[in-house]
Structure formats: structure tokens, C-alpha cells
């Protein structure tokens, strides 16, 4: 699997390259700044891009902006965004085009190599991975008069895990449910959120989007 990496701190960049290589990823380019990333993405058309939000030269949200504009040029380009802090604002911007294949994680998550690599794979496969902290912030606010408010607590739990990019099988394992029970829950979630019958993956993204909006 071909990866383009963007990270400005050399120590972290080398570490990430080593980690990804150890798990059989092919790191085709490692950018150290926004312009480098902007050049590398169309040149290599990777299977997934792993991007730090803050990059030189401005040290603002360079990485995020380059990733978003690259996804405009190449719709559906899988991007996993890493950051020292997570904001719902950025999560929404990443999810806004509704095509999925995005991830947004705290840098801390690389501590657990297995989970991190799993997240990269899921994004590359077109899934959506949201950091548990983004989800936790959502749960601070009680959803009122939004479709999400109609969900049962169990369905919210399922949606929560769906937002973290887990498959039905993984959710079943986590919640100690049968696969068919999870299938029923997800079907019920889609119905309650008025998501029409269509490609299942796309509906999962839209459900997560509705979830993020439900915080409002």
C-alpha cells in the first residue's frame, strides 16, 4: 500500500516512516512542508496520505488545507490527518464532502502501533475514523430536537463506534452483540436518520456526519 507522509518534525517523521514500513506500507514520499505535500499528492496519487495539520511555512493549518484542496482535485483521496489537538470544527470540514475515506486522530494514537496502522488501513479502504476525543466532546452536549436525539442509547453506542471507523463485526465484538443484532441497530440508525437505501459505506459516512451535527 502506497503512502504519502507529511510531518515537519524530523524525529517524528522518521518514526512514522519506520512504523509504517514495519507494517508493510510503501512510503513513497515524506513531505516536510505544505508546498512539498501539495506537489507530492498529485505526483504519486497514493493509496492513503498521512498528514500533520500544522506544517511550515506558516505553521498554521497548512496540512489540513492542502489535504482538503487535494481531495477537491482528487475526490475520495484517502487522507488521515494527525494533530496535537482535535477540534470538532476541523472534523466537520474533513467530513463535509461526504465521500468518506478520511481520518482525524490525535498524534498520541501512534503510541498504539496496531490501532494506528489499523486506522490507516481503514481510511485507505474508504472508511471514516474519528478520534475518540472528538466523539467524547460531542457527548458533552445533550442532543435536542435533532434526528440523533431519536436514537436509543444502544444505537448511539453503535454510532459512536461507527464514527471511529469500526466495521459491523468489530462493533459486535466490542459491544458483545451478535453480528445480526448490530446489523439491526445500524439499519435502525439509518432509518431514524432518514438515510436512503444506497451504498452501505456512504451511508455510514453520512450517519457519522449527522452524528457530528447532532451535537448542535
Amino acid at each position: 500500500m502506497r503512502v504519502v507522509l507529511a510531518e515537519d518534525l524530523p524525529l517524528l517523521r522518521e518514526g512514522l516512516i519506520a512504523l509504517l514500513r514495519a507494517h508493510d506500507f510503501d512510503v513513497v514520499a515524506a513531505a516536510a512542508s505544505g508546498p512539498e505535500l501539495a506537489a507530492a499528492l498529485p505526483a504519486h496519487r497514493p493509496d492513503v496520505a498521512v498528514v500533520d495539520v500544522r506544517l511550515p511555512p506558516t505553521f498554521t493549518d497548512e496540512g489540513l488545507r492542502v489535504a482538503l484542496s487535494a481531495r477537491q482535485a482528487m475526490p475520495g483521496l484517502p487522507v488521515l490527518v494527525l494533530s496535537q489537538h482535535v477540534e470538532q470544527l476541523y472534523a466537520r470540514e474533513l467530513l463535509a464532502d461526504g465521500t468518506g475515506a478520511v481520518g482525524y486522530l490525535l498524534k498520541d494514537r501512534v503510541f498504539n502501533a496496531e490501532q494506528f496502522v489499523d486506522a490507516v488501513r481503514r481510511v485507505a479502504a474508504g472508511g471514516t475514523v474519528m478520534d475518540p476525543e472528538v466523539i467524547a466532546k460531542l457527548l458533552v452536549r445533550p442532543a435536542v430536537s435533532k434526528p440523533v436525539a431519536r436514537l436509543t442509547p444502544r444505537e448511539r453506542e453503535v454510532l459512536d463506534l461507527m464514527a471511529q471507523g469500526r466495521s459491523n463485526a468489530a462493533i459486535a465484538q466490542r459491544l458483545h452483540l451478535s453480528d445480526s443484532a448490530v446489523g439491526k441497530h445500524t439499519a435502525s440508525i439509518f432509518t431514524k436518520l432518514d438515510l436512503a437505501q444506497s451504498d452501505d459505506d456512504n451511508r455510514r459516512v453520512l450517519a457519522v456526519l449527522a452524528y457530528l451535527d447532532g451535537g448542535a
Partner: peptide, 29 residues
């Protein structure tokens, strides 16, 4: 700690988006 000193989103996006991010994290609409 960093959030208390100078919120990253403020440095990255400026006042407008920082206030929006604040609003998203607020327990009330």
C-alpha cells in the same frame, strides 16, 4: 495546558474560527 496558554486553533485559524470551535465544544447551543 497549551489550550489554556494559547489555543492551537486560535493560532491556526484566528479569532473567528477559534470562537466557532469554542461554540462547538459548548454544552449549550
Amino acid at each position: 495546558l497549551v489550550r489554556g496558554i494559547h489555543p492551537p486553533v486560535l493560532a491556526e485559524r484566528g479569532l473567528g474560527d477559534a470562537v466557532r470551535a469554542l461554540a462547538l465544544d459548548s454544552p449549550v447551543p
